[in-house]
Nucleic acid binder design. Structure first.
Lengths: 191, 191
DNA sequence: AACGTACGTTCGTTATAACGAACAAGAGAT
DNA sequence: ATCTCTTGTTCGTTATAACGAACGTACGTT
């Protein structure tokens, strides 16, 4: 019942970046005094301030809990043959799935007058679309959103969604899927 | 920067398990009133109580955090004004940094005959480049790599790197920065 | 020495997370 | 119908997270 103090490992993060408390304060929006108390373990922050810290340090929230490793260099030449299914959209992989980032990205080609609908992905999956050619429309949250070349759209993919090209010109988009970090955390069986 | 509403997906977890507030309270050690306020979003819990919840539900901490998608749906129209520094490259943000994914993405424009070199980012930062227009070269690992429109390149950005456009036509590329969940965290010994 | 200044610490106050208890709406049961 | 038990809600108080500012310390400069 006496709850164990949760130790946030932000001191290491701060020192690693060579930041002072004052600098960190103005960088994250969390007061210097608070930062100090958190580092000493005298107070356990709210998730709101945890969020500020994560943003300021450019770290994912999970960073304060788990660690991971790096990936290598990857070069993917353009104009590889597209994987297309007849009547469906064509695409090829730009960056394959990487467990470290939890994302993968494709280049998708949408022929003129073509429509493609996709089923819901797993809960928490988020999709980034960035139109690189032509003009298209994206279905999410129950409506079609028009996207022109250069537009960027991020939406939750755990719902029915789709892409369509109503024009007579080919469209292309850069497509990144973010998978949620489902790394399980060990729960100490202490009550 | 302004704190958005942070919603914990506690209610979903509770209903899924078919638990009442009272039952959840005695099961997690968090008061019924608190649970209600958290579910309503009236208060953002401390990580200490978040820990209690995770324990009670036998769920990893990330299970509650994953749903804190600050970005929700994001639409970024094209052709926003570029942020350019004189003599430097121009760019604008397509997707701002999001702690859930640990990444941010830009659209960068490289004028003809233009060169830009960038200092090393923090250790572990990885960069994705996807050329959307023209042709360019990228410096990493000590050499310049030619990239044509449609090429994708992923490289470690914790080293001197750069971009240059040797041609007489403007080049553009889609640029994503992945920030690592650094390994460096170790619990500082208590004093 | 005295100054500057950047560091981490502590102090006093405010904002709010968290609690226990009382509260009202609903479902059976008698 | 009034009890009884459960649901989720709101009220009043306490505990503490969060803040701004003052403080002592250490290391440079002049």
């Amino acid at each position: 019942m006496t709850d164990k103090k949760i130790q946030i490992k932000l001191k290491a993060a701060r020192l690693k970046s060579g930041l002072s408390l004052s600098r960190t304060a103005e960088l994250t929006g969390v007061s210097k005094a608070m930062l100090h108390q958190i580092e000493r373990g005298d107070s356990s922050p709210t998730i709101a301030t945890l969020w500020k810290l994560a943003k300021g340090f450019h770290l994912p929230l999970t960073a304060f809990i788990e660690d991971m490793i790096q990936t290598g260099d990857t070069f993917t030449p353009a104009r590889k043959e597209l994987i297309s299914f007849p009547g469906s959209i064509g695409f090829h992989t730009v960056f394959p799935f990487d467990p470290v980032f939890g994302s993968e990205t494709f280049l998708v080609t949408l022929e003129a007058e073509q429509t493609h609908t996709s089923n819901s992905h797993d809960v928490g999956v988020v999709e980034d679309v960035f139109v690189t050619k032509g003009e298209m429309e994206i279905l999410f949250d129950g409506r079609w959103k028009r996207c022109r070349c250069g537009d960027g759209l991020r939406f939750r993919a755990d719902q029915p969604h789709g892409y369509r090209n109503l024009h007579d010109e080919q469209a292309q988009f850069h497509n990144t899927l973010h998978y949620p970090k489902t790394t399980l955390f060990e729960v100490t069986g202490e009550d």
